[in-house]
Design a binder for these strands. Structure first.
Length: 716
DNA sequence: GCAAGGTC
C-alpha cells in the first residue's frame, strides 16, 4: 500500500520522516525550494510512505470579478458577494507536487497541526489530492508532540478529518474578508469623497481595530488623569545610623480629615510596640516554559526588540536549527520530554556552560506546568548550542536558552522576616520586608529576574521603641503611562485578539497605517495614537453613544469574542457554518449601515473637538531635545495656520504659526487660556531650531489633517 | 488599494 503523508510545514515533514523511517529514507526535490519528498518503507503497516508538506494554507479567497475592483460595487454588496477560492501563484508548485504524489498513492494521511486551522489545511490538501485520484482514502494522523512513540501511534491509528472544525475556519475566513473589505472600502472612499487629497487606505479589521482601541483607550486615560492627593501616616526608626521605614497597614486615605483624626489618636500614644516577628521560608518561582506571546513580551521589555522583530529573529534561529518551533501557545513540557540531552548541549557554552553542568548532579528540577497546550508544539527551547551568533540573534538565542535552563532549574529559596508593629492603635510593617536569599538556584542562569535580599533590624517580640519619625504625610496618585508594546501584547492575548503568530503583525499594521506612532522614552518604547487613530476610535465611539454602543470599541472587541464562541459552536456541531455566518454577517451589516450613515461624525467629531469658535486637535507627541513636547493644533478664524507646542512640565505653550517660508514663534499661552510667562528669547530660538529640524516629522500626522481639508497648512 | 490565518 502506498501512503502519502502531508504535513503543514517542511519542519514537521522532516521530523516525522526521521522518526517513522528510523533514519533510512531517500529525498526527492520538488518544484518548490522548501518542500522535499521523503520516501521510505514502513513495515509496521506494510506500506510504502512518501512524506511531503504544504506551507500553511494552500488556497486564498477573494471576491469574484464583479466585486474585486474598489469601484465595481457598493461596499455593502460585499457582505453577500460570492467569494472564490484559488491557489495563489506561489503555491502552484506545491499543488502540482500534491497532484503527482496523490495520484500515485492509495491513502492520503494528513499530518497538519492538530488545531482548527490544521483541520482546514487538511481539507485543502484532500481536495487537491482527490482531484488527482478521486477514490483516494483520506485519513488524519493525530499527534500532540513530535515524540517517536506518539508519531508511530498516530501513523498506525489514523482518524478522520474533522469537517466541523474546517467549516468553522471557512466561516472565519469569509467573515474576515467580507467585513474587512466592506468597512475598509466604505471608510476610505467616504473620506476620499469628502477630502480629495486623502492618500492611503484607512483599513478596518476585526483584529487591527480593537488593537488600535487599546492604544487609544490608554491614551485617553493618560489624558483624563488628574492627580489625586492622599494622606498617610509615615513611621520610621533610625537605629545605629540605619533607617527602617514602616508602611501603614491602611495604605493611604483620600480623606484628609479622616487621616488627620487617626493621626491625632496615634500622637496621643506614639510609642511603638513590636507585637509579632515571624520568619518563614519563601520562594521565588522559576519562570514558566516559554510561549510565543511570552517571548514577544520579554523581547520588548528586556531585549528592546519589537514583537514582530523578535518573532522574525526566532524564526531565523529555528531555520538554522538552533531553537524549536517559535510559534506555540504551549507552556508545559510533555512528561517524556528529553531535558537532559538538550541541557547537555549547553554545557560547552562559556557563559552558562558551567551552570548547565550542575544539572546532572541534582541541579535539575522538573519544569513548572502552565495552563496552555496547543497540542502541536512544545514550549520554545534551544535544540542545539549556538556559539557564533551576533546582534539580535545572539540576544534572542541567549534569552531562549537561559529561560529554558531556568525552567529546568529550581526555584530560588529564601527566608522572609515579617515584623508587625502597633503604634497608637494602628498597624505598621517595615517595607521592604526582611529577606535573606539562601539559594539563588535558577537566578544564577536567569539574570532577567531580580531578587535582592534586604535586612531589617533584629526586632524582638514585645520590644518597644519611640519612632524617629511619625508624621502625617501627603502624596499624589501618579500618572499612568502610555501603553508599551509588551502591555499591548498582554492585552491582546488576554482579550483573544489575534493569535500567537499574528499579534505582532496586527501591531505592525496599526503602525504602518499611521494610526499609531512609536515613541521612545529612554529605553522604553511607548505607543501613542495619531490624530487619525484617535479620530477613528473616537468617531466610532461617538456613533456608538447614540446607537446603544453598537459600534464602540468595546463592542467591537466583544464581537470578536462572539465570533470566536460561534466558531466553537460550529466545531461542537451545535450550530452550522451557514447559520453562524448568517448571524455574524447580519450583525456586521447592521453595524455597517449605521456606520455609513453616521460616518460624517468620524470625520468631524472624531477628528476635531469643537470648543466655541476655536478648535483644538491632538496631533502627536514627539521628543524635542530632552523635553517631552505635546503638540496641539489650534485654529481660529483669524489664525488659520497654527501649531501649538506645549511643554508639559513647565506648562508653557508656544503657538507657532506655520507660514509658507517656514516656522515662526508667534505667541504663548496655556491651553486653558490662562496667562503664562512667555518663553525667553533663547528658549524660543531653541524651539524654533528644533522645530525646523523636526517639522516634517512633526507634521506628518498634521498633513493628514490638511488632507482632510479642515485646515490649510502649508509647509516648506 | 481591503482581512486574518497559516508559513518561508
Amino acid at each position: 500500500m502506498r501512503v502519502l503523508c502531508v504535513a503543514e510545514k517542511p519542519s514537521i515533514a522532516r521530523s516525522i520522516t526521521g522518526i517513522l523511517s528510523g533514519g533510512q529514507y531517500s529525498t526527492r526535490n520538488t518544484g518548490n525550494n522548501f518542500v522535499k519528498n521523503y520516501d521510505f518503507d514502513y513495515p509496521q503497516t506494510n506500506s510504502t510512505f512518501t512524506v511531503t508538506c504544504v506551507s500553511g494554507h494552500l488556497t486564498s479567497q477573494d471576491f469574484g470579478e464583479a466585486h474585486r475592483k474598489w469601484n465595481s460595487c457598493d461596499p455593502f454588496a460585499l457582505f453577500d458577494a460570492p467569494v472564490e477560492t484559488l491557489i495563489p501563484p506561489d503555491k502552484k508548485s506545491i499543488e502540482r507536487n500534491l497532484r503527482t504524489e496523490g495520484g500515485r498513492a492509495d491513502t492520503l494521511m494528513i499530518w497538519t497541526d492538530c488545531d482548527r486551522e490544521g483541520e482546514h489545511i487538511g481539507m485543502e490538501i484532500a481536495r487537491v489530492c482527490r482531484k488527482a485520484k478521486p477514490n483516494i482514502v483520506v485519513k488524519r494522523a493525530r499527534f500532540s508532540a513530535i515524540i517517536a512513540q506518539q508519531i508511530h501511534h498516530a501513523a498506525q491509528h489514523p482518524i478522520e478529518l474533522d469537517r466541523a472544525q474546517a467549516e468553522a475556519v471557512e466561516a472565519r475566513i469569509l467573515l474576515d474578508l467580507k467585513v474587512g473589505a466592506a468597512f475598509t472600502r466604505m471608510q476610505t472612499l467616504a473620506l476620499q469623497r469628502q477630502f480629495a487629497q486623502l492618500e492611503g487606505v484607512l483599513s478596518y479589521g476585526p483584529c487591527q481595530f480593537p488593537t488600535l482601541g487599546f492604544v487609544v483607550q490608554r491614551y485617553n486615560r493618560v489624558k483624563a488623569f488628574r492627580p489625586e492627593t492622599f494622606w498617610y501616616i509615615y513611621l520610621s526608626l533610625t537605629r545605629d545610623g540605619e533607617e527602617t521605614k514602616f508602611t501603614w497597614k491602611e495604605g493611604h486615605l483620600f480623606d484628609q480629615g479622616g487621616a488627620a483624626r487617626i493621626y491625632e489618636i496615634v500622637l496621643q500614644n506614639p510609642r511603638a510596640r513590636v507585637i509579632r516577628v515571624t520568619k518563614k521560608d519563601t520562594k521565588k518561582w522559576k519562570p514558566l516554559p516559554l510561549t510565543t506571546v511570552e517571548l514577544q513580551k520579554a523581547g520588548s521589555r528586556l531585549l528592546k526588540l519589537a514583537p514582530k522583530k523578535v518573532l522574525d529573529v526566532a524564526e531565523k534561529l529555528y531555520q538554522q536549527g538552533f531553537v524549536s518551533y517559535p510559534r506555540t501557545e504551549t507552556d508545559q513540557f510533555d512528561p517524556q520530554f528529553d531535558f537532559m540531552t538538550l541541557i547537555g548541549k549547553q554545557t560547552v557554552d562559556p557563559a552558562w556552560g558551567e551552570f548547565a553542568r550542575t544539572y546532572q548532579n541534582g541541579g535539575f528540577g522538573v519544569p513548572r506546568k502552565g495552563k496552555n497546550n496547543d497540542k502541536a508544539h512544545p514550549p520554545i527551547h534551544p535544540t542545539a548550542h549556538a556559539g557564533n551568533l551576533v546582534g539580535d540573534e545572539k540576544k534572542v538565542y541567549e534569552y531562549i536558552t537561559r529561560r529554558f535552563l531556568a525552567c529546568c532549574s529550581k526555584d530560588a529559596e529564601g527566608s522572609q522576616t515579617t515584623v508587625e508593629v502597633v503604634c497608637g492603635g494602628e498597624d505598621f510593617y517595615p517595607l521592604p520586608l526582611g529577606l535573606i536569599v539562601l539559594q539563588r538556584n535558577y537566578l544564577e542562569v536567569y539574570p532577567y529576574d531580580k531578587w535582592i535580599g534586604h535586612t531589617v533590624p533584629n526586632f524582638q517580640e514585645g520590644e518597644e521603641f519611640d519612632p524617629s519619625v511619625c508624621e502625617l504625610r501627603e502624596g499624589q496618585t501618579s500618572k499612568p503611562n502610555y501603553l508599551t508594546e509588551a502591555d499591548l501584547v498582554t492585552l491582546m492575548d488576554k482579550n483573544g485578539i489575534g493569535t500567537d503568530a499574528t499579534i505582532a503583525q496586527h501591531i505592525q499594521t496599526i503602525v504602518d497605517r499611521e494610526y499609531v506612532v512609536e515613541r521612545m522614552e529612554g529605553a522604553i518604547k511607548y505607543l501613542v495614537p495619531s490624530t487619525l487613530g484617535i479620530g477613528l476610535i473616537d468617531g466610532y465611539n461617538e456613533i456608538g453613544k447614540s446607537f446603544s454602543r453598537l459600534l464602540s470599541f468595546t463592542r467591537l472587541t466583544f464581537l470578536v469574542h462572539q465570533t470566536e464562541r460561534r466558531m466553537v459552536q460550529v466545531c461542537e456541531r451545535t450550530t452550522t457554518k451557514n447559520d453562524m455566518l448568517q448571524t455574524s454577517l447580519d450583525q456586521y451589516k447592521h453595524m455597517f449601515i449605521i456606520a455609513r450613515r453616521e460616518f460624517d461624525k468620524v470625520a468631524t467629531v472624531g477628528l476635531i473637538t469643537h470648543s466655541h469658535s476655536a478648535w483644538k486637535l491632538m496631533v502627536s507627541h514627539r521628543v524635542l531635545g530632552d523635553t517631552l513636547v505635546q503638540v496641539l493644533l489650534e485654529g481660529q478664524e483669524e489664525v488659520e495656520e497654527a501649531v501649538v507646542v506645549e511643554e508639559e512640565e513647565e506648562a508653557v505653550v508656544v503657538v507657532v504659526v506655520v507660514v509658507e517660508m517656514g516656522v515662526m514663534v508667534a505667541t504663548a499661552r496655556q491651553a486653558e487660556e490662562e496667562e503664562v510667562p512667555l518663553l525667553h528669547a533663547a528658549e524660543v530660538a531653541v524651539v524654533e531650531a528644533a522645530l525646523e529640524v523636526q517639522l516634517l516629522l512633526l507634521l506628518t500626522p498634521i498633513l493628514k489633517v490638511r488632507a482632510f481639508g479642515m485646515i490649510s497648512l502649508t509647509h516648506a
